[in-house]
Design a protein around this nucleic acid. Structure first.
Lengths: 338, 338
DNA sequence: TCGCCACATGAAAGCGCTTCCTACGCCGTC
DNA sequence: GACGGCGTAGGAAGCGCTTTCATGTGGCGA
């Protein structure tokens, strides 16, 4: 609104490449070349052009550029949801890496909205490539994106599509065996495996790990938030032969479960073991501190950006599949240490 | 890579408005009108066009559209950083509201990078409006954005620019008075007021509230993460006449401070009061639970998107300044309740 | 001294869309 | 029966940029 924007003074709209060309006394092609370095320009001319750019405060219009150059210099990322530390961290890593690679980031949270499909397709139309997390849209939608490079994160491998995942299976097995070592007998898994491929893997791993010790866990569906954790755990713990271990699909559920256990007078880590997944900040501050599994969330995001970039630049044409390691973090909520 | 993308089969690139026009046997102008409803089109023609659109899987190119219509259908949001629950929640609210309003969201984290200025200007060139959080870029940068609508969040009011803030001052005063009621005498504020306008307000409010009871707090600079909180608090608590209350600029610092206090055998809530700000998840799970101030983070984000939209659509031309209320959440870390 | 070549540059053709302006039917009316 | 008006649709001109193609200039070798 102030007079600041256009040093030239009178202009209303933005300054275009024509203004710069006129000012520098050259053609628009030369301005373009001087700025992008796409072809040689005499040193004196380049200096003149850059001076004009500076004086006029010229910023090339992105719409014009992407139309002509058929590129967007932007990446997309699709989340099922944006709440919780997990997604924030992944986004953080992604944004950091993408902007280091000179790309803007467009975020989209499908959040269970019915038109998620259309939203993703729309997004695909304004980026050079995109990352899709977990169960946001069906495989068909991804396949139908056509020639826009896609990297899936925390989702099963899809033919021809790059993927990046954390190794849920191994850590889950280790967790199951660790719990068996604590002498638990009746184990309940809280979470909905069918809601997320990641959770399905965790469930499978835990079952394997416990199964090796003759323990057969049960699964109880549960939304991935604290309140649901409290509610579901309360129901589970209220019965006569209650479980002596609650393996939760994420930390939020586990933290909620701890509340439920304490409410009915159970000592977490003694009367009942409770474990989470993700190692969010609250996990280590809770008392008893939560036994959980740490996954490299930020690395998941930054690696996704890098893998995607290879596709966009065409540096690589064969699919790449990465499996990042996770760590079991043993604290007090799973039982007293020997 | 598969044959899925273009039902027409042979096409390599994307299908354009010309393809649709040819298929429907109309001109491109009619296709545009039929799709956007910008002018009346005979019902039969419209049906024919829409059928062609459907069959060809036509998606208008965003670059073409924004170039011709001089609009981007996208909003930007600039964060100083993306870590921590605060920003994630704000983004969540923003994305939700923006996409409800039919706009994509571009995120940018300046993260102390030296070219933040250029990055913000670049961002401004690809959106219809943007939100700037806290101390990411100087006022001049915002002013120089010219005619791109801007809404600042958690930042002092700027002439002619819409703003949305949480009421730090009132809650901070209340917090100061509450602590005074607990009988504290030596109060240290942990955080760097000069780093963030929000924090400066919190510091001012706390000082006011305590000052009313004859207590003069001191301020100790501190980065806004747990480790810094632990380190700074450890230093503060190690001296002979240690503070009996640590007022922390955010929950991360406070949680870190609790660790430091417990490490040297102090009982938080008895020997030393510790308070935070934000009410993150870990605050209520920590033991003792953290006394803190809850701010409507998600509302901050969604309101920003709405206020921005009013500017973009031109529904409003006078600045709007919103101050959202915050709540003191008293738990155990600030002292035993009478 | 003449001719050729490399280099630097400008003109112009799009990129895919929106929209103004014009043209064409068809209807109702005098 | 001819004319004006309205509803509908097409042509074409941009939007701001990149890039191809053609042109002009100077320098060099012969």
């Amino acid at each position: 609104m102030k007079a600041l924007p256009t040093p030239s003074g009178t202009e209303t709209g933005a300054v275009t490449i024509y203004d710069v060309a006129a000012r520098a006394g050259v053609g628009i092609a030369t301005v373009s070349r001087a700025m992008r370095g796409s072809a040689p320009v005499a040193e004196a001319t380049r200096a003149r052009v850059l001076a004009a750019v500076e004086e006029l405060g010229f910023r090339p219009s992105h719409a014009g550029t992407s139309l002509a150059a058929r590129t967007h210099a932007a990446n997309g990322i699709v989340f099922p949801d944006l709440s919780g530390p997990y997604f924030a961290e992944v986004l953080l890593g992604y944004e950091e890496a993408a902007s280091r690679l000179g790309r803007s980031v467009l975020v989209l949270a499908t959040h269970g909205r019915p038109d998620a499909d259309a939203a993703v397709r729309d997004l695909a139309g304004r980026v050079d490539g995109l990352v899709v997390l977990g169960r946001t849209v069906p495989d068909e939608t991804i396949a139908a994106l056509g020639d826009v490079p896609v990297v899936v994160v925390a989702r099963p491998v899809l033919a021809g599509v790059d993927s990046i995942r954390a190794d849920n299976l191994t850590a889950a097995r280790t967790l199951g065996e660790h719990l068996a070592g604590h002498g638990v007998r009746r184990v309940a898994f809280l979470g909905s495996p069918e809601e997320s491929p990641d959770v399905a893997e965790r469930w499978r791993g835990v079952r394997d790990g416990l199964g090796a010790h003759g323990i057969e866990p049960t699964v109880t569906p549960c939304l991935f938030d604290e309140d649901s954790g409290t509610r579901v755990a309360a129901g589970l713990l209220a019965v006569r032969h209650r479980p002596d271990a609650l393996v939760c699909a994420n930390d939020e559920i586990a933290l909620g479960a701890i509340v439920a256990a304490e409410e009915i007078g159970l000592r977490v880590g003694r009367d009942v073991a409770i474990t989470g997944w993700d190692d969010v900040m609250a996990a280590r501050h809770a008392r008893p501190a939560l036994t959980t599994v740490r996954q490299p969330m930020r690395a998941l995001g930054s690696l996704a950006a890098e893998v995607l970039d290879e596709r966009i630049t065409g540096d690589r044409t064969t699919p790449r599949h990465e499996l990042l390691t996770t760590d079991l973090v043993v604290r007090d909520s799973c039982g007293l240490h020997p």
